[in-house]
Design a protein around this nucleic acid. Structure first.
Length: 466
RNA sequence: GCUCCCUUCGUCUAGUGGCCCAGGACACCGCCCUCUCAAGGCGGGAACACGAGUUCGAGUCUCGUAGGGAGCGCCA
């Protein structure tokens, strides 16, 4: 039987980083084993599900390149099927109607807590054999086995056993006519032939209940793998308030999708000492059974390192489009400056993100907007600066406009004026950028363009004399 | 409260009884290189939560303690 995994988010928010890792692992597991990856939107919570969130999740998945083989399926479109299965369960005596109000249930829970027990349903209607009646409080509850225990071998956590006496008769159909999560997932996973259920470990405690439903339905139980949580830098639960949680936030911060994937694949999983994984390597080497049991923290510094690694080793062509997206976001008109690929070549070793790259590229697409006083004083205010600028102006007006040729001009200048490279390059750097930090001087000048470079030297000469 | 789960450098991790006075990576510090900033090279500090056991031998097995997390919904 072929392996089928599924990613089943509920559309109540954006695709967050933990969900992205779950999706990645599902995707990798299906890819390595030659199976299928299914996307299913769990939108039975009519109160909180939104179309905006559905779109955000789809966009996030697409941006990461985690394309599904099947779906997206929507649970809201499968209502008739859930009803049918629930009715079968009731007919077979494996589920029953119950009529307590929410308030009554709440009171029941509190009473149980008082008595030092788990808060749960007391089973009032379990053996009452109450027939269907039209009642606003009517729900369908699953008749959970009273005896024995449920045991399963989790591919991440290992053997897990929970006594049925710990489980109560959960609601599988709400009074509003919609199925609950625990029921809908099982019906869907059976119908969709899911063989590997890979999800967050906040679902571990639901698994025994679901296994009981599989049994009641006479369906084969899939394999389970529960992934530990991803915590923030402080070891706290990731929260929208203090962390970037949406994968699209990471896009805005200038991270490459592949860097995020590489970071995520190593968070909780490893292959010896290897840190860098191409898409193909991930697929070939990843195994859900090798995932760690413990929660891990999200370390933006390491993500930044990976991002830079890909920035400086990937073919610039492969991410120019993404870079141009960032250039536009910082208000750059890319027709008014150098080709973005050339900017990438100059900056890729000096920044960690595309956002940073775009910020620093601004100086080549428009006038210098700010002068660093210290830089001006130090490098334009010294004795040799005017001579350097003047000589450079003359040579740059005539040389071939290529970084290598410009480099020669600078060197020639240093020899001619009997100055160190620093004395020659720094005044020019300040002239080109208004600051004392930039890529190599020849790249900086080259990207500025001849006309503009000369204009900036003129401006700098005025400042040097003043 | 009850149930389930987790615990190796600051962080991500290697490690499946001897190869470990614990390896790699990020971060940090130092040196080198150098037109600035980076990148790169070299080097450094830094961990088996604790306590009992089992064993000739334990980071690795068992039990306990402590700490952390998740769940206990007509949310997913």
């Amino acid at each position: 039987m072929t392996v089928r995994t599924r990613f089943a988010p509920s559309p109540t928010g954006f695709l967050h980083i933990g969900g992205a890792r779950t999706a990645l692992y599902c995707w990798l597991e299906s890819r390595r084993r030659g199976g299928q990856f299914i996307l299913r939107i769990e939108d039975t919570d009519r109160e909180r599900s939104t179309d905006v969130a559905v779109q955000a999740i789809l966009d996030g998945m697409h941006w990461l390149g985690l394309d599904a083989d099947e779906g997206p399926f929507y649970q809201t479109q499968r209502l008739a099927r859930y009803k049918q299965v629930a009715d079968e369960l009731v007919a077979a005596g494996k589920a029953y109607y119950a009529y307590e109000s929410k308030e009554e249930i709440e009171a029941m829970r509190e009473a149980a807590m008082q008595a030092g027990e788990k808060p749960r349903y007391n089973g009032y209607y379990r053996d009452r054999n109450e027939p269907f009646r039209d009642d606003p409080n009517r729900v369908i509850r699953f008749r959970n086995p009273a005896e024995g225990s449920v045991v399963f071998e989790d591919k991440v956590k290992g053997r897990i056993e929970i006594a049925n006496s710990e489980l109560d008769d959960l609601v599988i159909f709400r009074s509003d006519g919609w199925p609950t999560y625990n029921f809908a997932v099982v019906v869907d996973d059976i119908d969709m032939g899911v063989t590997e259920v890979i999800r967050g470990d906040d679902h571990v405690n639901n698994t025994p209940r679901q296994i009981n439903i599989y049994h009641a339905l006479g369906a084969p139980v899939p394999e389970f793998a529960h992934l530990p949580m991803i915590l923030d830098q402080e070891g706290k639960k990731l929260s929208k308030r203090t962390n970037a949680v949406s994968v699209m936030d990471y896009r805005e911060q200038g991270f490459l999708p592949h860097a995020i994937l590489n970071y995520l694949v190593r968070l909780g999983w490893s292959h010896g000492d290897q840190e860098i994984f191409s898409r193909e390597e991930m697929i070939a080497l990843f195994d859900i059974a090798d995932v760690n049991k413990a929660a891990s923290r999200f370390d933006t510094e390491k993500l930044a390192w990976l991002n830079q690694h890909y920035l400086k080793t990937d073919e610039p062509q492969s991410f120019v489009a993404e870079f141009e997206w960032h250039l536009q976001r910082v208000g750059v008109d890319i027709t008014k400056g150098p080709a973005p690929v050339e900017v990438i070549a100059a900056l890729r070793e000096r920044v960690h993100t595309l956002k940073e790259m775009a910020e620093r590229a601004k100086i080549w697409y428009g006038p210098i907007t700010a002068w660093d006083d210290k830089a001006v004083a130090k490098h334009l205010g010294n004795a040799s600066a005017p001579g350097v600028l003047e000589a450079a102006r003359a040579l740059l007006a005539a040389c071939e406009w290529k970084p290598a040729a410009i480099h020669q001009v600078i060197e020639q200048l240093a020899v001619q004026l009997e100055l160190g490279m620093g004395k020659v390059a720094q005044p020019l750097r300040v002239a080109m950028t208004g600051t004392q930090v930039s890529p190599s001087i020849e790249d900086t000048i080259y990207l500025t363009g001849r006309e503009e470079a000369i204009r900036r030297i003129d401006a700098a000469m005025a400042m040097a004399h003043a």
